[in-house]
Amino acid sequence: MSRADLDKDPRDVATMFDGVARRYDLTNTALSGGQDRYWRAQTRRALAPQPGEKVLDLAAGTAVSTVELARDGAWCVAADFSQGMLRAGYRRDVPKVAADALHLPFADASFDAVTISFGLRNVADPDAGLAELARVTRPGGRLVVCEFSTPTWTPFRVAYQELMLARVLPAIARGVSSNPDAYIYLAESIRDWPAQPRLAERIGAAGWERVAWRDLTGGAVALHRAFKPA
């Protein structure tokens, strides 16, 4: 078993996710207290995929998020650089592609909408990843980033960072995950991630416009939505 470090070497990150793939969905539901389902539904509503549109779900893991996005009739493809994660979701009937977020195997302007959930934080160069997502999106197309963020209410923020991330998350991971050490990296990467306004600035700098965000679960998770200039 292995875990990545905050330098986010792509091979280390891929190997780490290969190691948690077998029980990944179960672990996420346990760690979030079932909120993962709510976050997926809110991501779909923010992206608003329409019948006939082409949608890229990057860092899709086992493709559970891709299935949610496809509920409204769009053609949705799951892309992830962990082949172990894609194999773990083989029963989910959506197209799956092994892909590096920094070198996507798609032509310019291939998609009407793109999204990445809990994956941008794991990209070695998030700004380049956001620019690559812009490259494969048609002019006027949409982006939604669903990612862990910074709780806005101070008492909740302190409890979340000092209790949930430091104690509760590792304890649950030891009982449920196939690679508990990977969730030490998870906690570290959440603490290291920029708060909502700073991420919005970085999305805009990567070529997106009309950037806005909405907090979920008290700001522990945030949805950032943006559009590619027409």
Score class of each variant (00 low, 15 high):
residue 183 Y to R: 04
residue 79 A to Q: 10
residue 6 L to H: 12
residue 26 L to D: 14
residue 117 S to F: 13
residue 84 G to H: 07
residue 35 Q to H: 09
residue 121 R to Q: 08
residue 198 R to S: 07
residue 192 D to R: 10
residue 189 S to V: 03
residue 167 R to D: 07
residue 76 C to L: 05
residue 159 A to D: 03
residue 11 R to S: 09
residue 83 Q to N: 04
residue 207 G to S: 10
residue 21 A to W: 01
residue 129 G to S: 09
residue 83 Q to K: 06
residue 33 G to D: 13
residue 50 Q to F: 00
residue 136 V to M: 02
residue 105 P to G: 13
residue 38 Y to Q: 08
residue 212 A to C: 03
residue 60 A to T: 10
residue 147 E to N: 10
residue 17 F to N: 08
residue 199 L to T: 14
residue 203 I to K: 07
residue 24 Y to H: 09
residue 133 L to V: 12
residue 122 N to I: 01
residue 72 D to M: 03
residue 24 Y to W: 12
residue 11 R to V: 14
residue 191 R to G: 08
residue 66 T to G: 13
residue 179 N to C: 12
residue 72 D to T: 15
residue 192 D to S: 13
residue 163 L to E: 06
residue 53 E to L: 05
residue 42 Q to Y: 03
residue 113 A to Q: 01
residue 46 A to Y: 03
residue 27 T to I: 05
residue 40 R to Q: 07
residue 187 A to C: 09
residue 218 G to I: 05
residue 206 A to D: 14
residue 223 L to E: 07
residue 38 Y to K: 01
residue 228 K to W: 11
residue 46 A to M: 03
residue 222 A to I: 04
residue 139 P to Y: 05
residue 216 L to T: 04
residue 68 E to G: 08
residue 84 G to C: 06
residue 149 S to I: 10
residue 118 F to L: 14
residue 198 R to N: 05
residue 156 F to S: 07
residue 69 L to P: 06
residue 16 M to K: 02
residue 175 G to N: 08
residue 104 L to C: 09
residue 209 E to I: 07
residue 57 D to Q: 07
residue 42 Q to W: 07
residue 28 N to P: 01
residue 46 A to D: 02
residue 119 G to L: 10
residue 140 G to D: 12
residue 137 T to W: 00
residue 92 R to S: 02
residue 34 G to K: 00
residue 163 L to K: 01
residue 187 A to W: 08
residue 228 K to F: 09
residue 122 N to M: 04
residue 226 A to Q: 11
residue 188 E to H: 06
residue 61 G to N: 11
residue 55 V to K: 03
residue 81 F to W: 11
residue 173 A to T: 14
residue 173 A to G: 12
residue 68 E to R: 09
